[in-house]
Design a protein around this nucleic acid. Sequence first.
RNA 1: GGAGACAUGGCAGAGUGGUAAUGCAGCGGACUCGAAAUCCGCCGAACCGAUGUAGAAUCGGCGCCGGGGUUCGAAUCCCCGUGUCUCCUCCA
Length: 439
Amino acid sequence: MLDIKYLRNNRDEANQRLIDRNVEDGVLDKLLADDEKRRSLIRKAEQLKAKRNQVSDQIGAAKRAKDNSAAQKAISDMQTVAGQIKDLDKQLSAIEESVHTQAAHLPNLADPRVPVGPDDSYNVEQRKWQPTDLQGRPAAFSKTPTWLKAHFEIGEDLGILDFQRGVKVSGARFLYYVGAGARLERAVYNFMLDEHRREGYTELLTPYMVTNESMYATGQFPKFVDDAYEVGKNQSMTMIPTAEVALVNWRRDEVLDESELPLYITALSPAFRQEAGAAGKDTRGLIRLHQFNKVEMVKFTKPEDSYNELEKMTVDAENILQKLELPYHVIRLSTGDMGFGSAMTYDLEVWFPTQDKYREISSVSNDEDFQARRGHIQYRDSKTGKLRFVHTLNGSGLAVGRTVAAILENYQNEDGTITIPEVLRPYFGEDKISKENAR
RNA sequence: GGAGACAUGGCAGAGUGGUAAUGCAGCGGACUCGAAAUCCGCCGAACCGAUGUAGAAUCGGCGCCGGGGUUCGAAUCCCCGUGUCUCCUCCA
């Protein structure tokens, strides 16, 4: 949620920044016109209410003085006023709802350092990384050996990924991991969680279904209802599309103690997404599923610390890829490509040799006070004694399924086996996946 | 799932139709060399509007779990929710 006072007082600047976020010109004008109507109604209603309070006081006094005729006169006067107030309040709640709905559909404003542009072609690469010694594995943008198989091919050949039966049981974009596949997934997320714990994140195990209020606070609702799976007879609950929802809402409607900040939390969870609008894209493999595992990081920080913390969180996500020795690059998303609530986002993209390109594996964002406003997450500033909204940050660390896919592609050998990355061996227990140990 | 009780400021706790007692804590002051004790004063958080301004301040609205209703007027009466606790039921 944007600060309506900022929009009101910096109209032209705000309008341009909204246009940069692909909001149609004129949307802000309509909102501010309705806001003016709203305030004018408030003024009228409050005047009458002040009068009512005054006269009611007099009625009480008159009754106590047994002056019934004076009381009766005032009461009949106030009957008219009460009707007017009721009418104004009715109009007011209608316009308030309209203003709120319009405001709730506005995305966060981008930080001035974010490249301006309508789509992903305006994203800017920040840095790229690959291990100095790849030990024979494919390097980014090198000539790919012809025997290399896509992750879903080698997964099926080894019998560790079962897409067909996933489709049978649940439909398209679902799968079973089998044997070494399931164990590899588990090794990967255990490794990630341990790394984050070492970096100072507290591990949480969260609800996977949340209320609409929670979906609203993190910005998924009302605009992106169609992307979510709602459950229950009256659809009052939603399957989380990311652990971010459960993690940020953990402290919703609270005033945090200043000494808690910055607060780092992390969780593994499945993420459920309808993938509306992605029809036909990435139809094979682990890249785009209706249900996938993800380790998520969330921070609550003071406003002045949030961009520094954003850099650190990005490094925390990069650390996972570096320890897994997977080539990747970091890009800064443009104003048109960022998520709804974000003021600045870095995406990490990992190298997929058979696709000859980088694919997104993590997205790290500073939402500033956008979610904190919606979810009322504050802290009391000890210097001023005032309440301030915290800044919230979220980042994948990392998408687990895509990490497994990247390992299968980057670590496969010509004989059809998979070498297990060094850091995963204590978790996986073996150094290779072959047909012999696939179960 | 069934039954009952409860929900008021940071905390405790009155208030059953006339506009939120009181105590503790907190803040400011007096007394004191200083502190304690004592005394005096202030004090519900958030939110909204107006004047004003970049620090506020002043006035008003709102405000007793949330939402409706009755009334000139609701913490109080009525209806619908939510949460907590206790008992029963059920279960991993």
